[in-house]
Design a protein around this nucleic acid. Structure first.
Lengths: 229, 229
DNA sequence: CCGGATCCGAATCGATACTG
DNA sequence: CAGTATCGATTCGGATCCGG
């Protein structure tokens, strides 16, 4: 038997053998946002060693989770197969689960464009969504977030995002929102928009501050009733 | 920063730091069936080294996923916290996902009572469920499977299962079904009940063979429309 | 710059033995 | 029963290097 096999004939075990290795889930998370080059993935996962990234991409390809696609001009991108895309609801649920106990960031923790994009998808409340068009800045990341007729669209703006994946959104956003990691409190319902602004977790640098009410209603992760004991 | 941290402030990342280490998900899988002693877990995960089991149990406890509960008479059990139980839908979805590409078992692969119990929960179709009461044998594992009014009850019978967790089910089952790993084909819809019997994947050693029709309707994992390319 | 491959020390994992 | 201790085998992390 393969030395490092779990040795069980079971669906969960097979899943974990496909995507349970270190970094694999985070690679899938980033690819759920869209196809990515090797270099994009490396930038989106700053602490991954390049040999591990190589190995994981090969293993995920062999497992049928992703494939390499040569680009017509030059280079290549990695993209999820339909089987890999079927992980989306699982990754979203895992993101909601992990959100509950995130606490404050550790020193050196970063927020990447892809992780913030997935966090927005994770917390998106299609039922209660209000129409919305804003620019969201967290650290170095800048996103254009548009909600229209119950659908969420996120585009990554120039600095440190693969450009041109979706064309530049048209028109001006209603507001520009600058936030820190404390935006978690707003999404988690720990803080009201007014409190989040008062405590400097979020600032509206252009536009009407009341957009935060719609934001908080649209992006929300309800706390679990019991987190202990 | 912690040397082995992913270095990202993100819900998925936090989740993976809590339950992404090797073996952790399988420990959670077994504990979703019920509280388990150290020795039960070791028997349910035959290839886990004991030092790893110890480490994982400590880490999962520190992460708030499980807790140790001393028993009144003697010994102790591990059980999921409410936060840990919130992983159930995620584990079930992961089991369905992994089921799609399970193939045939590798040499030495085993089926455990807890993994088979979770596989039944994974594939249970509450909507289409038919009433059912059977004894299911796969390898060394014997389960009493009862479906009544749309609810699934699984009890692990004597050999190699922690006894008395739920009292012995009353009465006699309608049928006794003996299966091998090829039961996957029946659940996945690759084989009809008649085909599964003809190819020796399943045998009804007592009772009416037509119980397999109800079984296949009740436990089913629809194949994904596209598994490639 | 892109897409890796190679090398090496550190940390983790796997197997077995042993203990209160 | 519920773990610790030990030790070799793997894997991971960090850095460098290389061919297009």
């Amino acid at each position: 038997m393969a030395a490092r096999s779990y040795g069980q004939y079971c669906g969960v075990t097979n899943a974990v053998e496909l995507i349970g290795e270190r970094w694999a889930m985070l690679i899938v998370r980033d690819l759920l946002v869209g196809p990515r080059r090797y270099t994009d993935l490396k930038r989106g996962l700053p602490r991954i060693p390049t040999n591990i990234l190589s190995s994981r991409l090969r293993e995920l390809q062999e497992g049928g989770v992703l494939r390499r696609v040569p680009l017509h001009n030059c280079g290549l991108v990695y993209e999820l197969t339909p089987y890999g895309r079927a992980l989306e609801p699982i990754l979203l649920a895992l993101g909601r689960w992990g959100f509950q106990t995130m606490g404050d960031p550790h020193e050196g923790d970063v927020v990447t464009a892809d992780s913030l994009t997935m966090a927005l998808r994770t917390s998106f409340q299609a039922e209660r969504a209000a129409d919305l068009d804003l620019e969201l800045h967290v650290g170095d990341v800048a996103l254009r977030v548009i909600v229209r007729s119950g659908a969420l669209h996120v585009a990554q703006l120039a600095p440190a995002g693969p450009p041109g994946v979706a064309g530049p959104p048209s028109g001006e956003p209603e507001a520009i929102v600058v936030a820190g990691p404390g935006i978690r409190r707003l999404i988690g319902g720990e803080a009201t928009p007014a409190e989040a602004v008062a405590q400097d977790h979020v600032a509206v640098v252009r536009g009407d501050e009341r957009i935060l009410d719609r934001f908080a209603r649209t992006f929300h992760i309800a706390p679990l009733p019991l987190l202990g004991p």
